[in-house]
Design a binder for these strands. Structure first.
Lengths: 235, 235
DNA sequence: AGTAAAATCTGACAAATGTCAGTATCAAGA
DNA sequence: TCTTGATACTGACATTTGTCAGATTTTACT
């Protein structure tokens, strides 16, 4: 977690995929000046459960997980966010303490936009307000979706789905099959909501059915069609 | 689902607990005129998965469940809403089809506020916009919370928690112990994310431990302290 | 490159939960 | 009020998943 050369919001490719695209030149310049950019190494906290929010976090480059500790002390990963996403809306807007943590899963550079300037722009710019509402609403929809999947699907389906979620969040290598993911088996288990052993066993099944191959920690999705079908997704 | 005498928003006790409290007299009058009020009988749909939203729904009186069908055809109840709550924000704001259904669990009178007038007020009134964001954010937070609870807690804890959720949503009779809930055991199972038999078994356990009593479908919470402790809630 | 710590993987077993079948009870509607 | 279909409940059993122990491999760091 180090300070470093601050990026310019004006020319930032990440800004244009967020609600900040709704702002005028002056507002962007002001945010660019007031933001705090930091480098987060893998596994370092961007924010943690129980802390009070100080603003929203715009991911300039990298990936984070949004996760939460269960009563039993085990982690559950609720979602991922990457380059061009903003995290931390909900807690700031609800005016509460974080009930989730945000942790870098890769070395990432992330900008904190302070509350005060965020709220001012939301108040003054209805398009930005609507953009924020749109984004939170999407999050709520996918989170609701996930509740049903986690409670009503067997582990095999959930592991297949986790692979697809990882593919969405991190993408594939140039070969078109290798997951660009730094996640451990334990982290995959935290997506699925199960024990690491169960994930490993299911991945072994998939290997023996020639749906995936593995090479150490990395996974190749060699039969996407079948995985999608196993994941049993509708919508 | 019948039309009936339309309530007046101006004097409506439900309005003041929603984002509509942020509006001026003229705007309230306009909404009062443009809304459509309906009576929904138990188990009738306010809206259904797959439909396109036509506005937001303000619950004038009654209770609804927000639920979703799993791939296996079983229902999962995500949340409840009652008198003075508004439902349907997220889908409208995300500009998508409903991915959940809203079903009356009691005879309820509910007002539809059309999209057009909702969006106009959100655009023109920053306080209302922020109020809406606040409400959605709260929903997102409780939904995230629920993911962790559903995946990492054993059934006994989840059933205890479901009883507390029902108490929050429906309240207690004058005796201070009887749940004012029309829910069947199957619906409770849909909150917990399990089979009805498992719920019944757990309730029988609770009975034999003198934590609850039952009388047909109704349940009395005679030892709240113990139930809270079993539910194992933090935050 | 070498080493220590961490992560992956396998098997055996235990525990939790789901499923099925059947009976008893309740509640909504004629 | 009566009746009938739905709901609640119980027990036995199958299945899934979690847990524990231990061997192997990989990764991270010096």
């Amino acid at each position: 977690m180090h300070a470093f050369k601050q990026p310019e919001c004006n020319s930032c490719g990440s800004r244009v995929s967020t609600c900040l695209i709704e702002l005028g030149t002056n507002q962007v310049a002001e945010i660019s000046q007031q933001k705090h950019s930091q480098l987060f190494t893998r596994n370092s906290y961007v924010f943690a459960e129980g802390q009070y929010p100080r603003g929203i976090y715009c991911i300039h480059k990298g990936h984070v997980k949004i996760s939460k500790m269960g009563a039993d002390g085990r982690e559950h990963i609720i979602s991922f966010a990457g380059t061009g996403n903003i995290v931390g809306y909900a807690t700031l807007l609800a005016a509460e303490k974080y009930n989730v943590s945000c942790i870098a899963v890769q070395d990432s550079s992330i900008c904190l936009i302070p509350s005060e300037i965020f709220f001012r722009n939301v108040r003054e710019n209805p398009s930005m307000a609507l953009h924020v509402m749109h984004d939170i609403s999407q999050e709520l929809r996918t989170t609701s979706q996930r509740i049903v999947e986690l409670t009503h699907k067997p582990i095999r389906e959930r592991v297949a789905e986790a692979l697809l979620i990882i593919k969405e969040a991190f993408g594939l290598d140039a070969d078109g099959v290798t997951l660009r993911s730094p996640l451990t088996r334990e982290e995959i288990a935290s997506i699925v909501g199960t024990a690491p052993e169960s994930v490993i066993r299911t991945l072994s099944e998939f290997k023996s059915e020639n749906l995936i191959t593995t090479n150490g920690r990395t996974i190749q999705l060699v039969n996407m069609r079948a995985l999608v079908s196993i994941a049993n997704i509708r919508d």
